[in-house]
């Protein structure tokens, strides 16, 4: 599992190709990877939102307008999805670079 990150931390999707599969699933393959990662459940929606809303705190309000769950529950789901994106090398964080440079 990926390390913890703040809800304000920004993420960028790596250069990739992708395909929508039957039953709402998605395949995403970074250009530098040999095989794609499958996204299912709410992960494809969060993946799409991440393009224009680069952090947990930016995505949650978008999902609040679509679902009745509490912000905390939604944030938990978004964090889980982003953790999976990190573990699958689908995203990078410019904030990590900034932190390294500051240190």
């Amino acid at each position: 599992m990926s390390e913890t990150f703040a809800n304000s931390q920004r993420f960028e999707r790596v250069p990739h190709v992708e395909r929508s599969l039957a039953r709402g699933r998605r395949l995403v393959q970074p250009l530098v990877a040999d095989t794609p990662t499958q996204l299912a459940g709410s992960a494809p929606m969060i993946w799409d939102l991440l393009d224009a809303h680069p952090s947990v705190e930016a995505i949650v309000p978008e999902l609040q307008s679509r679902f009745t769950d509490s912000p905390d529950v939604i944030a938990g789901g978004v964090r889980a999805a982003i953790s999976m994106f990190i573990d699958s090398s689908l995203v990078t964080s410019p904030d990590d670079v900034a932190n390294v440079e500051e240190a």
């Binding site: 190709v17 992708e18 395909r19 599969l21 039957a22 039953r23 395949l27 393959q29 250009l31 040999d34 095989t35 794609p36 499958q38």
Partner: peptide
Amino acid sequence: VIAAHDEVMRQTMRIEVKAVE
């Protein structure tokens, strides 16, 4: 049918990455 499509897409995406390269 869905499983066969999934597999074909995995192959197609590898070829698509090659097209980009």
